[in-house]
Structures are given as structure tokens and as C-alpha cells.
Design a protein around this nucleic acid. Structure first.
Lengths: 251, 251
DNA sequence: TGTCAATAAAATTACGATATTTTTATCGAT
DNA sequence: ATCGATAAAAATATCGTAATTTTATTGACA
């Protein structure tokens, strides 16, 4: 028992450490900035004033700019020559776009993964699913409101589960694109979380996908994944719409 | 006649100017470097020594590093913390991967484009096709060896044609990914060009795709595009294999 | 109200200083 | 003598700061 707690604590520490890990200042800044953008701490669409960031993050201009460049590559930051940097804005249109493209990429990657997956893949998927189930807490899990920490943990494990599922597709490019799009989608989930009303039986969907994948039923797994992503889309879209309505009310 | 020559010359100048255009030193360096990588002037897999590049391109260290960052985002340059930058290597495995993912993305984008395309789209496709046909020069065009300049022109117009085809898909993300993957594929085409033996009736394939797209036959256009990309893959793979065989002979 | 010059703000770039990695040289053991 | 480990040296990447260039803002004037 004590052993279990220790492992959990280590895992948590590890996860938190990864927020700003890296060997160079630029990479650490990259991780911090990415976290702050994905979490919504930095307002979507807002100007990133370099001088302010230098002070806020206690960092030099050079590593800061080196950190912003790859964020622009991830489409989390927009940049215009000699006009600076902005946090990439969120919009219903882009959420729509990302959801569709993500479905295209993730179902293809999953299909290939189910075709090619070996025992190691199955084990990785089982492990990731077990960890995710733990935090989703049973068949009707996460119905009740949960803490920010739990949500963080859920995001990590949901990410790990989706990553494990496609990990055997043997296509570095599909994996790279899947990762990119997952991250984009995460932004939308995170900022819309506070506006979500009522939770859906997301765990049941994960169970179904897991069983179809392990059962090597590619067609079914892909169909379920597509539905899963579309349900996510619906929920986030609703929340985002309410959010924007509220904002325009205030104005 | 003189008029025609003038137009051609202007076009050429314009195209050459775009190689290293941009308002900041960093962007100009980005364009030059990208060109040199895609064209193969910079050896795939080779180390990019910053000091050497500073001298070769007559540029400061800061803009050079700013130029390298987005190239890493495009996956044309690999980087490791504290260890520097390399030209991304080429491999048969990655060519395979890129070709498959490109097919996935480009057929989906084309399908949507055919669904959504309006008159403006049709016009853009017709124009791009006309320009491409001009340089491919008729039904059995480009059978005879052609100059480097002509190949450059062909690359530009082939790119423009593929871009026009998917331009109405109304998915910025699909377009971005298509662009990324086209560029990757172009690298392989370019470096393998010198090793290509015998040309195929590529123009016929373009004609068929063009007609299916304009005829709004999405299914057929996608199938033809898939075949087109796979033929390209076969040719480039053959050339690359010969190239690598020759290299290992020399060693 | 619109334009233009002056000023302020901000981004880009140069350059020197520091830290890390890689290579070379040295030493000792087998 | 050769190999492996260790230490010095060189090469290279990273970072901070300041100078330069460009863009945005302000306010006077038409």
C-alpha cells in the first residue's frame, strides 16, 4: 500500500517536472510557454510582448525567441515579420477543422496500428488504458465535479492512451501529425472545461475503443474513434459557443 | 514574339527573386537555406556548422538561428539541444512514409475541394493546369532530357497545380499539411532526378486528374491522384535505391 | 477629418561572454 | 606496444546585452 502511494507520488512529480524540463533555457521556456498557452493562462489571440515575457519568465531575449519559433511551428503561436508574436486565437471554425483532420489522421493511424501491433503494443495499450480507467474511476466515472489536479492527470492519461493506440502504426509522420493535432484539440478542451455543463459517459467510449483495438477489429475501432472525437467536438463546441456568447454579452 | 520572351524573362526573374525574398534577414536566410536543402545543394544528413554558415551566407548568428528554427519545424532540419543542427537525412523508409501520408491528406483535401469548389476554384485549376501543360509540352511531353531551368519551372508549376486542386477544401489544416508533405516529397524528387532513367507519361496522369476534378468526379479524381502519387513514389524510390547502391559501391 | 512629422515602442540583429560538447593529448595498466 | 581511462584543448552552441531598424502612436497642422 505504501508502495502504491510512493509510485503515484513519483509519477506525479515526474509529470510536473516535465512542464519546464529541458537542458537549454530555450527549451525550458518553450515548455513553460506551451503549457501556459494550452492551459489558457495566456489569453488566446493576445499579443506576446517580448519585453514583458523576458521579465515574467526571467529569461533573456535570445532563448525566448528560440522558444517562440517552435511554438509557431506547432501553430500555438502566430508570428508576423517585424510585428511580433501572438497567442494563436481560438475559433469555432478552427475547432471544426481540427476535429475533422484529427479524425482523418487518428483513424488511419489506429487502423495501421491494429494491423501491425505486436505484443508490446498490446501491453502498452492495456497499461495506458488501466491508468486512464483509474482516473476515470469506473463505468460512470467523472460524473461529479473534479479538482484541477485530477483534470491535469486525466489529460495526461487520455493523451497517453491515444498515443499508445496509434504507436504501432509504423508511420513517424502520422504519429507526428496526430501529436500536433491532439495538442491543438487539447487547447480547446482546456479552455472550454469551465464552461462544460454535464459530463458524458466518456469512459464507456474509451472502454469500447480499447476492446475493439485489442480485439483487432480495426473497422469497429475506427468507427468508435470517429464517434468519440465527434462527441468531444460537440461538447467543446457547445462550451466554446457559450463562452463566446458570454463574452459578447459582457461587451 | 518579343513580348513572349519578355514575359518569360519577367516570370523567371520573379521566381528567382522569391528564392531569397523576405523582409528580415532571418526570413531571407530561411528561404536560401530551404532552397539549398530541397535542391540537394546541402547534403542530406550533413552537419550544419553555424560558423561556416555565418560566413557562407554572410549573415549574423542571430538571424541564422532564427532561420534554422522554422526549418526544423518543416522537418527539413534536425536539431538536438547543445549539439546543433543537421540537414534532415533522406531514407527509403521515410519516402515510403511520406508518400502514404501524403496520399491520405491530398486525396481527402481533393475530395473536399471537388465538393466545395466554386467557379473561382475551377478557374484557378484550369489556369494552373494550362501553365503546367505548357512546360510539360503535350501528350508525351518531357520525354527528352530537359535543362535544369525547365525542371525548376516544372517543379513550380506542378506545385501550383497540386495546390490549386486542393485549394477549395476549406480546411486550413489540410492545406498546411499538404504543403508540408509536398515539400518533403519534392526533396526526394529533386535529389533523385539525376538518377532517374526514362521518364513516364506524367502529363497524361495530370490530364486525367484535371478532367476528373473539373468533371466533379471526386471518386475518380482521388483514385487517379493516389495512383499518380504511387507512380511518383515508384520512380523516386528506384532512383534513390540506385543512388544509395552507387554510394555504397564507392565506399 | 485626414495627413504628416516627431516620438515612443517594439522587434530584429550584432557581438561578446559563457557553457557545453567533441576532439585531441597524456598517462597508466595490461 | 595497445588499449582504456582521464585530462587538457579546441570547437561549437547557447545566452545576455546593447545597438539598430522597423512599426505604432501621438499630436500638430491643413
Amino acid at each position: 500500500m505504501i508502495f502504491e502511494i510512493d509510485q503515484t507520488m513519483l509519477l506525479r512529480m515526474n509529470e510536473e517536472a516535465t512542464i519546464a524540463s529541458g537542458r537549454t533555457l530555450a527549451r525550458r521556456a518553450y515548455h513553460r510557454l506551451r503549457h501556459d498557452i494550452v492551459s489558457g493562462a495566456l489569453q488566446p489571440g493576445s499579443k506576446l510582448k517580448l519585453e514583458s515575457l523576458v521579465q515574467q519568465y526571467s529569461i533573456g531575449m535570445s532563448p525566448l525567441r528560440e522558444a517562440l519559433a517552435p511554438l509557431a511551428g506547432d501553430q500555438l503561436v502566430k508570428t508576423e515579420d517585424q510585428r511580433g508574436f501572438w497567442v494563436a486565437p481560438l475559433s469555432l471554425e478552427e475547432l471544426d477543422d481540427i476535429s475533422r483532420v484529427r479524425t482523418l489522421v487518428e483513424t488511419e493511424a489506429l487502423r495501421l496500428s491494429i494491423e501491425n501491433g505486436d505484443d508490446g503494443w498490446e501491453r502498452a495499450v492495456r497499461d495506458a488504458f488501466a491508468e486512464l480507467s483509474q482516473v476515470e474511476g469506473g463505468p460512470s466515472g467523472m460524473q461529479q465535479p473534479v479538482s484541477q489536479d485530477t483534470l491535469r492527470l486525466w489529460e495526461d492519461r487520455n493523451h497517453a492512451f491515444h498515443t499508445a493506440l496509434v504507436s504501432a502504426c509504423q508511420s513517424p509522420w502520422l504519429i507526428r501529425l496526430q501529436e500536433l493535432l491532439y495538442q491543438q484539440a487539447e487547447r480547446y478542451r482546456r479552455v472550454s472545461l469551465n464552461y462544460s455543463q454535464g459530463r458524458r459517459f466518456i469512459h464507456d467510449e474509451h472502454v469500447a475503443i480499447f476492446e475493439a483495438a485489442i480485439g483487432r477489429n480495426a473497422l469497429r475501432a475506427c468507427r468508435l474513434t470517429e464517434e468519440h472525437l465527434m462527441h468531444t467536438y460537440d461538447v467543446v463546441r457547445g462550451a466554446l459557443a457559450r463562452m463566446q456568447a458570454e463574452k459578447s454579452d459582457a461587451a
